[in-house]
Amino acid sequence: MSTLNPARVAREFPSRYRLEAARCDACGAVSFPPRLVCPSCRGRKFKVVPLQPEGKVLTWTVIHVGPSSHKHEVPYALAVVELADGVRITCQIADVDPAQVAAGMPVRLEFRRIQEDGEAGVIAYGHKAVPA
């Protein structure tokens, strides 16, 4: 069964591969992933800005029963990470014992496999946090 649509995966490459965010021309708020309308001022003009890959764990949870795409990775930590430029993203924390994760822990984003469509389908890449 196919779970990953290649067209949809490809549409997200700018933000998933290069961490491209949108900075509102009017108020300067940064949206990630980019939006059509600024949630702060409803502005509609943006400039592409790359996110800073360094940040810290704001809050986290440990997944013990994962979706079928991630069941081989349990237990794993899923966190809200606040990046250096203030943007918050939700991502897995890799290369760490989930019991060692703590609020304020410094992390950086690294390019990893996020999921794959079985053995024959496409592979979706993106970013996970790792201990800095």
Partner: peptide, 9 residues
């Protein structure tokens, strides 16, 4: 390599 690491990553 971890399960989320490969030649591309």
């Amino acid at each position: 390599p971890a399960s989320d690491e490969d030649t591309v990553t």
